[in-house]
Amino acid sequence: MRRALPALVIVFAAGLALFWWITAPGTVPPDKFAGLTGDRTRGEQVFWAAGCASCHAAENASGDDKLKLGGGQRFPSDFGTFRAPNISPDPRVGIGGWSVIELANAMMRGVSPEGAHYYPAFPYTSYANAAPQDVVDLKTFLDTLPPVATPSEAHELSFPFTIRRLLGGWKFLFANKGWVMEGDLTPELMRGRYLVEALGHCGECHTPRNALGGARRDAWLGGAPNPGGQGTIPNITPARLTWSAQDIAYYLETGFTPEFDTAGGHMAPVIENLAKLPAEDRAAIAAYLKAVPPVE
């Protein structure tokens, strides 16, 4: 046993070093953002496409109150309840003091300015494909919004989900996987892919997940249980969503379905956001949804 002890120590130390390396927070290359300047108007379009107000404004906020991003909404899941943080430009409890790179690390890598992992309730696995210019434009727009002095509330999680370092292993398995739809795409399909897979993060809700909470890309947009425990989130691939592209685009603008029903639940604020985008963007989303592989 005494002879085996040094070897066991070496194996343990090597395993610990490998774990520490795999779970280390990764950051974006700063040179990706060098020389970029932000535009408020473009940033507002990114803001609505990314659905920032849907999570970070107060629940049921409307009108100008949707631009007060003090957080606080609760999002239940199998792992606990997550609370949306304050992302207003308040310099003390919001993100007013963040740099563009710090926002990019949060959005695209799920890493805080302090170097801690964020929980993937924040859809950074989708935002990872965001264009650097869009992040810069979004920061410019966010900086013009009203500061909210409400401190962020803590998530309601139990052990071991309180150990953020473990999220590095989750990211190693499930994050930064690139685009789902590959191939020689038209400009319209590329725009639709960008809006659906990146900024719009549609797959975060409409794609089923495995036991560890990773998106099942083999069933992309194939529908999923509602994390809140009531009902399901629908399959929006051509296997179930049989509307025409024109019907889909109209629904994304108005919330009215071809069956004379209206969008409700969490989809209602999504429609409000998408209605603020150019018609070409909604048409691109519709074209993507007609082209994505069907999931039975």
Rank of each mutant, 00 (worst) to 15 (best):
M1N: 11
A7S: 14
L8K: 05
V11L: 15
F12G: 15
A14V: 15
A17Y: 15
A17I: 14
F19W: 13
W21H: 14
T27R: 14
P29W: 08
L36K: 05
F47T: 03
F47A: 07
W48Q: 04
W48R: 01
W48F: 15
A49S: 10
A49W: 04
A49Q: 06
A53V: 13
C55G: 03
A57Y: 10
A58P: 14
N60A: 08
L67R: 15
G72V: 04
R74C: 04
D78W: 04
R83A: 13
A84Q: 04
A84R: 01
P85W: 10
N86I: 09
M108A: 05
G110D: 00
V111S: 00
P113V: 12
E114Q: 09
G115W: 07
Y119H: 15
F122T: 04
F122W: 03
P123F: 02
A128P: 00
N129D: 10
A131C: 01
D137Q: 01
K139P: 09
D143G: 11
A149I: 11
A154P: 08
S158I: 11
P160R: 03
P160D: 08
T162H: 04
F174N: 03
A175T: 00
N176F: 02
D184L: 12
D184N: 14
L185H: 08
E188F: 04
L189Y: 02
L189N: 08
M190T: 10
L195I: 07
V196A: 03
E197L: 02
A198M: 02
C205V: 10
H206E: 04
P208A: 10
P208S: 02
G213Q: 01
P225L: 11
I233Q: 03
I233F: 03
T242M: 06
Q246V: 14
F256Q: 05
P258W: 06
F260G: 06
A268N: 07
V270P: 05
L277C: 13
A279R: 13
A283N: 09
I285P: 02
A287D: 06
L289W: 08
K290I: 06
V295Y: 03
V295E: 07
